[in-house]
């Protein structure tokens, strides 16, 4: 079933390319807490016949689910916003202790043209929090780099058994419209 992508805040072409990279990497489980910046990926995942898209109530559920998927031989990804990274901290122990591959795509808030001050503290802390828990951080600033970065991160995660986060800069996602 082809589901139309919702209107994002910016062009969706690079998002389609990112989705294609996940598809090519063999991802079959897409766990997510919704974010406007991930809306295209979420819609594509729901529409894909060989993917299961799973809405979560909180981001750490997705960390645990990704490890469960790996235990069962499937590849999973976690989509979240930077505010959700803080919710994942202790659950990342599971990834680290098991040597599990882990791939998360994080849309950044609190860094560029942010309107909401409540997004700023976690946005600033996001890379440090991930690195503190052993997750490699790769940042995407330009749309033309997005798919290649996700493709490389997927290879590092599923091939080398690493934990990798790709941070999509807020400037890339686009300014949030407040009216």
């Amino acid at each position: 079933m082809d589901q139309p992508a919702p209107a994002d805040t910016a062009s969706t072409a690079w998002k389609d390319a990112v989705f294609a990279a996940l598809e090519a990497a063999g991802v079959s489980q897409v766990h997510y807490v919704p974010d406007a910046g991930h809306a295209t990926l979420i819609a594509r995942a729901h529409a894909h016949p060989r993917m299961r898209a799973v809405p979560l109530t909180t981001e750490e559920e997705g960390v645990a689910a990704c490890v469960g998927a790996w235990l069962g031989g499937a590849r999973a990804v976690l989509l979240m916003q930077s505010s959700g990274v803080g919710n994942c901290i202790n659950m990342l122990s599971l990834v680290r202790n098991c040597g599990a591959p882990f791939l998360t795509l994080v849309t950044m808030r609190g860094e560029w043209a942010e309107f909401n001050p409540w997004q700023v503290p976690m946005g600033r802390a996001t890379p440090a929090v991930l690195e503190a828990m052993g997750v490699a951080v790769q940042r995407v600033e330009r749309a033309e780099d997005a798919a290649e970065t996700v493709d490389a991160a997927a290879a590092l995660a599923y091939g080398a058994g690493s934990a990798v986060a790709v941070l999509f800069a807020q400037r890339l996602i686009g300014r949030k419209v407040w009216k």
Partner: peptide, 14 residues
């Protein structure tokens, strides 16, 4: 807090 979700990821994979 993660046991049931590990179970879900596993159940979907298998």
């Amino acid at each position: 807090g993660g046991a049931a979700m590990i179970g879900l990821g596993l159940a979907l994979a298998q």
